[in-house]
Amino acid sequence: MYAQLVETGAKRLKTLEEMSPEEREFQLKVDAETKIEAKNWMPEGYRKTLVRQISQHAHSEVVGMLPEGNWVTRAPSLKRKLQLMAKIQDEAGHGLYLYSAMETLGADRDEEIDKLHAGTVKYSSIFNYPTLSWADMGTVGWLVDGAAIVNQVVLQRTSYGPYSRAMIRICKEESFHQRQGYQILLDMMREGTEEQKEMVQDSINRFWWPSLMMFGPSDDQSPNSQQSMAWKIKRKSNDELRQMFIDQTVPQLEFLGCTAPDPDLKWNEERGHYDFGEIDWQEFYDVLKGNGPCNKERIETRKNAIDGGAWVREAAKVYAEKKQQKQQNAA
């Protein structure tokens, strides 16, 4: 997940006849479900779209550590602290793994991070919401990682080989995080005090809609989707994925004994799906544009970490060069 609006540069699909021989060969390969590898020819638009999507995804993993870092120093037990630390470590690993996949496309991690700090590339809007209580560590695991998984399970079949393989590995860990998150909430709902139960419901109230926004704009407002689907970078539309998420999540919500802040949420026998209310798209676009509760803080924190660490990285580089020089002199 974590890539909500990825520009493809194409507003209309080319037909096979309109394509160059190389483009046609590429498209036929994609259609035949043959994975595209780094050394293969690919249209420039495909490459750029993937770089945008994978970098958004990688940035999201890294920025996503911050709302959890907000509670890792206050985790209420040794077990929960260790779980949260392990989750954060996994996320840093996902970030590294995704940046590597992105670099197979000729992009540069440092340049992409500079763009993130300059605000010219995005990360998932969900991480611009504050984590205000411990229950949020459960909700983030359950709803946010849950939404991410719905998308990422599909992305395991994405057409670009290195991205697809990264997704397979990442999905295993994300499912584990989701179960842990749900367990945090379940334990509080089953054995917790009234205050703890209120904490859980309040957390769900705050994260419900932002989680649904993680799937991006509705299909009729998603002009880039068609090209991404044709290239099989995307495999299912935003609305399809959102519906899948809601359908699988509502029974879990009921099992918790909690409610969603959506009076229109109800099972539709005819459709075989849950109906749900209209997302506040104004809020979605505001947060995406930088006007979310924590956009400023998140980027500032990341920028300070990287800028403030410049002398550290420089020292490591100079030391490595000196060491190499010494070895050469000794040889």
């Binding site: 911050l66 870092g69 120093t73 630390m85 840093a92 970490a305 990287i306 660490g309 990285r313």
Partner: peptide
């Protein structure tokens, strides 16, 4: 743990948390 998200490089985030 206080350094979460604030390390000088992503590799260091991993190592510190480890």
């Amino acid at each position: 743990c206080e350094l979460c998200g604030k390390a000088p490089a992503l590799e260091e985030e991993m190592a510190l948390m480890n």
